[in-house]
Design a binder for these strands. Sequence first.
DNA 1: TGCGATTTAATCGTGTGCGATTTATTTTCA
DNA 2: TGAAAATAAATCGCACACGATTAAATCGCA
Lengths: 145, 145
Amino acid sequence: MLDRALSLDELLCFALYSANNAMGRLYRPILAQHGLTYPQYLVLVALWQRDGQKVNDLGAALTLESNTLTPLLKRMEAAELVQRRRNPEDERSVIVSLTAKGRGLQQEAAGISRCILAAAGDDVADLIDLRSKIQQLATRLNASD
Amino acid sequence: MLDRALSLDELLCFALYSANNAMGRLYRPILAQHGLTYPQYLVLVALWQRDGQKVNDLGAALTLESNTLTPLLKRMEAAELVQRRRNPEDERSVIVSLTAKGRGLQQEAAGISRCILAAAGDDVADLIDLRSKIQQLATRLNASD
DNA sequence: TGCGATTTAATCGTGTGCGATTTATTTTCA
DNA sequence: TGAAAATAAATCGCACACGATTAAATCGCA
């Protein structure tokens, strides 16, 4: 089979990389107003949904491991957004819980995703469909190891 | 308007973040065999397409700036993948060119994207459509600043 | 012509992601 | 029971991304 010269525009991986970077650039200044980074915001979303998760639970939700999460959570603890304490029932694990401040940000942050959606496009149904297709892609990619 | 509790699964940004991380995890071990990282691979793709680009040209292609590209290109230069030299016609700019080694990797790397596509899905037409929609999203996001 | 504005890379600091390893705790099963 | 296996987090090193700033070269225009 003849291989044409590869172009950036043809790479699905580059489309993802580029769109994700663009999303980050959009979120960064908004989140910075609340003293948050992008993955820190995602941790908060996960905890707003269910407070008091183990590091591994958060890792499963975000597809990250302790080598990424531990320092990130320590910074969030230093910023008084979360509390980290050993699980009394199994001292190997660490429970991450929201502080009042971390919980309080939920109200402040409520408008953020709306603001991002507005930048992403005007047809909400299209965006939901795209999100679903990207989720399926991520699932397939994660299954290939 | 009533705000429901936000869930990770509902966030387009998280779908992108997660899929991009998954793609990176898939590429990393393959690219590592060639001594490459993911963004380094993207720089090579851009140079295979057109050799001898200025740092700014690469930045425009990848949507990155010199604060990211300069150290990355220096590592690629140290790995003898590219050559960096000041543009004689305008000493402000730097021309990045492929070395023989960098050019040679094009053949070796030819199978990579096929290998990734296989992990991404079996319906090529679907993947091309998804890529196109993600590209459009990136374009819209980049336009909102 | 010359000097301020612009353009282009480079530099610096912070915060991820992740491979590889380590440490502490719990589980398993001989 | 008790030592090996398994599990959970932490640690370490490297390579991005990017905001902010700096330095050098070129441009523009009075």
